[in-house]
Amino acid sequence: MKKIEAIIQPHKLEEVKEALKAIGIDGMTITEVRGHGRQKGHKEVYRGMEYQVDLLPKVKLELVVTDARFDEVIQTVVSSARSGKIGDGKIFVFDVAEAIRIRNDDRGEGAL
């Protein structure tokens, strides 16, 4: 099992969700986050007031998938979240040691 953590542009969320749904992935956790990568922040001037915008709004998507589906899911996220511009985001992948369904104590891939 792998955990996929994708930081994407907010406006790409619907597209990514739809694309995942189309390949049968429904379960995910979505968080509104702020941060910056290489895009860094920028200074913004509005009517004489300077605002340092150093944390840019992004959306974090977390999901855990079986090893068998891993490549397909990554491909789907990458292609649906990509606009080709700076700030498209990043994906991080972790190995998952165990998954447990709290309701009935199901373990392993069956608990996903």
Binding site: E32, V33, R34, E44, Y46
Partner: peptide
């Protein structure tokens, strides 16, 4: 009204402005 939304709304305003 999270910080996230506050920032997004302001950016939206700025783009329109």
């Amino acid at each position: 009204m999270t910080d996230w939304r506050l920032e997004q709304l302001w950016q939206t305003y700025l783009v329109g402005y």
